[in-house]
Design a protein around this nucleic acid. Structure first.
Lengths: 234, 234
DNA sequence: ATCTCTATCGAACGCTGTTCTATCGTACCT
DNA sequence: AGGTACGATAGAACAGCGTTCGATAGAGAT
């Protein structure tokens, strides 16, 4: 049962020579270029110029591959987040970090499905969680309230990003159908509903039509943060 | 290309006779009994006493099967939610409905991954969305604020439920390892982290250890609702 | 009796994650 | 130098998946 520990130097004539780094980098590249469904062991092996089974020396399963790939890119996000100035207002700091995390997941929706799934493997995710929590130490809260607050925020960030970034139905991916037209089709269906049975849907259909994802997330985040500010009495 | 429209009466001697209803019911039963990985066309066909390809007469793909199965059980949730008394406080009403929806998804985490994914197929989900939105009509908000509020709440509900209910790592499923021991193992790892580098994690590790999922969700929901109440000036 | 349309099904296809077994190549030991 | 242990690679096979194809049974209309 091989478990990590690596360093593979220059390769021979025909045999490929990988490294944990290269495996994760290529895995992420594959995910970025063609979505989660494109990340297969065969595709990854071809990209690395080696055999399928070799990947299993670095990683025990596809789940672990995704866990490690996730933590790999979260490392970059962590750096971004650590570069943010804390400032005076802890809640504003929390907000800035959340927006950065959200942007990262929105671009790579698969992150949301694996982020913080296993903190044993995902060291960077744990550090990011710590970073998100630190501002709450400056607020007048109980330990439990702090725990719940950070959980709530990560849920909003990850939940929103996953929801908004979930793979669109092919037509949109192909570019044959724009996002606005896609929303518009639903909006049109909604508008045809009975006005007495669906008063709310009618009320918001114009807002839904062509709405901005980031604004929608920001609104959700700000509701939570407003509640938190109230709780902290600040 | 066959598309719904059914009614299949009594079966002959060896040929099976299904119906949309029976397909969805058995699909849900399979999901409930052994989790999402147990729902395969072959397993479902065996349960229905028929062939694999027959299912494709009722459903065009596995995605559609899951969409329809989701809406099937959401129908029951909708009935529960419609039975709730509105009461005087719109936000409290919203809260009660959210808790009901959360409970439903917590028991069936796969719901979260498909809920509201396609309102064309998921009529009940749309009706539920409407129900969740109606209380906001009684609040002093703009249409956009209402839209964002309901989006925020569904994100919190679905996000929390999916997060908390995601398939535990087999040992827990087998019953070999209790949930508390599972949490405790992580807690133990966290406690060994450097106290200066991880002040927040140390602060909350006792809260994390053996925490209650529902309480955690309720805290997240209440933060959002507090923010909403503030926004509505009520 | 034949035709048509709904509904069913076995068998096959191409793909997936994973495992088995065999091997290459380097570093170390004598 | 020769032998050996081990880190690392890889081809081939396996079982299972969603999906498609083509054949066909049964009921009702002509």
């Amino acid at each position: 049962m091989p478990r990590h520990q690596n360093r593979g130097a220059a390769g021979g004539r025909r045999r490929a020579s990988h490294s944990m780094e290269s495996v994760l980098t290529e895995a992420v590249a594959l995910l970025d270029e063609a979505g989660p469904s494109a990340l297969t062991f065969r595709a990854l092996a071809q990209r690395l110029g080696g055999g399928v089974a070799s990947i299993y020396w670095y990683v025990a399963s596809k789940d672990e591959l995704l866990d490690r790939a996730t933590d790999h890119v979260i490392g970059g996000v962590l750096a971004e987040i650590e570069a943010i100035e804390p400032g005076d207002d802890p809640i504003y700091h929390l907000r800035a970090m959340s927006l950065t995390l959200f942007d990262a997941i929105l671009v790579r929706p698969w992150l949301g499905n694996y982020f913080m799934r296993n903190t044993d493997v995902q060291g960077n995710a744990l550090r990011l969680y710590e970073k998100l929590g630190q501002p709450t130490l400056r607020l007048k809260l109980t330990a439990r309230q702090r725990f719940h607050a950070v959980s709530a925020i990560t849920t909003v960030v990850v939940g929103s990003a996953v929801d908004l970034g979930q793979e669109p139905p092919q037509e949109v991916l192909d570019g044959a159908l724009g996002r606005d037209e896609f929303l518009g089709r639903f909006a049109a269906t909604w508008r045809e509903l009975d006005a007495d049975d669906f008063p709310f849907v009618h009320e918001i259909v114009d807002e839904f039509d062509g709405h901005d994802d980031i604004e929608q997330f920001r609104a959700a985040l700000d509701l939570t943060l407003a509640g938190l500010r109230l709780q902290a009495g600040a």
